[in-house]
Design a protein around this nucleic acid. Structure first.
Lengths: 193, 193
DNA sequence: GAGATTTTAGACTATATAGTCCATAATTGT
DNA sequence: ACAATTATGGACTATATAGTCTAAAATCTC
């Protein structure tokens, strides 16, 4: 019956996300979005609502994919290897990103703290990631990789917080030596009884 | 000879800083600034240049005052007491701030990463603060509060990074229990040989 | 008190921006 | 093939915004 869509909504959303991630919310105009998504205004509004709705969907997409990558790295690996891998991968991405985009979640937190819906998505993602850390730490504890007395919840909160700080600092000053120092110290924190 | 200024430039700058801190750069209009600073456009432009120049001065002001507070807390105190005090003060401020403004430096990093001048100010502040941490850690090491083998530079980088993560997370989710967990684990990291 | 000089108030301009709308194109079912 | 239906292009609108400019106000020196 209807005329079919000429574009792939998922690809368009991915491109919108990349644009918001690079430029921030306020600094991204609808023209920027139409260009990046290769869409006319009509198609954009019909498919995604307005600019803010598009941002919320982009943010959700980012958190979903980020958490999935998180889970993949943490699974089936000694916790120290997993964390080392996480930091190595991150450092690689950070140094390769000439745009210094940082973490989209962190960027949204800084820019959109007064947007309750956006922050609800951010908080949800943070809590999920923290939970994955906690689960991984508890599993490691059960395997004897971490001392039994350690408070896995507190350690998970600490690790996730450190990770976000890591990405924020890297955005301002992507210096390999500094990043490696921070990653190294964070890893040693697993040894704290 | 001239007609004297009717306003206090320092107070006006402070108010501009508070406004940028609350709302971010792009979301702050010149009308917002004129209102907050109780200044007409002419006076604002004559005294501070344009909006961006005003932001750079506000950012400089924030970093200067922040670093001074930092130094005051770190001076003449056992390092563990100093860090505990730092976190306690921060948690108090965070929980009292209904606007969730977070750290202005972090906000600027997230929103203005593509502004080289702004980032130069941010990087300078970060490095200075990191240096103060390092100096305090080395002094503590000399006093025997920290084991001699510890790499003070790496630990300082880690602490400052953690602190920024702390403030970013708190902005998104100012939960007392989480903040206390993170602070506690960070403090125990001083014990890592 | 008059002239010189700077500040101030606020009107004004040019532009950018989010969002709307309508005419046309493309497709499917009958 | 034609009607029905949805997608698309892009013009259009209303508004907000950064920055400029002019005239009046306030002060100091002489």
């Amino acid at each position: 019956m209807p005329r079919p869509r000429e574009f792939d909504p998922d690809l368009a959303l991915e491109r919108a996300m990349q644009t918001f991630w690079s430029q921030g919310y306020e600094s991204t105009s609808l023209d920027d979005l139409c260009d990046a998504m290769a869409l006319s205004r009509s198609s954009l509004y019909a498919a995604f609502g307005d600019k803010r709705a598009l941002l919320l969907r982009a943010l959700t997409r980012y958190t979903t994919k980020g958490t999935a990558r998180f889970v993949a790295i943490l699974a089936d690996r000694p916790i120290r290897d997993a964390l080392a891998m996480l930091f190595d991968e991150l450092i690689g991405q950070i140094l390769a990103d000439s745009e210094h985009r940082g973490c989209f979640i962190g960027n949204c937190t800084a820019e959109l703290a007064r947007d309750d819906e956006a922050m609800a998505i951010v908080r949800g993602a943070m809590r999920r990631n923290e939970d994955h850390f906690r689960a991984a730490l508890e599993a490691a504890q059960a395997r004897g990789e971490i001392q039994p007395g350690v408070d896995a919840t507190a350690l998970a909160r600490f690790l996730f917080t450190g990770l976000q700080g890591f990405r924020l600092l890297a955005k301002a000053d992507p210096d390999r030596a500094r990043l490696r120092d921070v990653a190294r110290v964070m890893l040693t924190c697993l040894d704290v009884g």
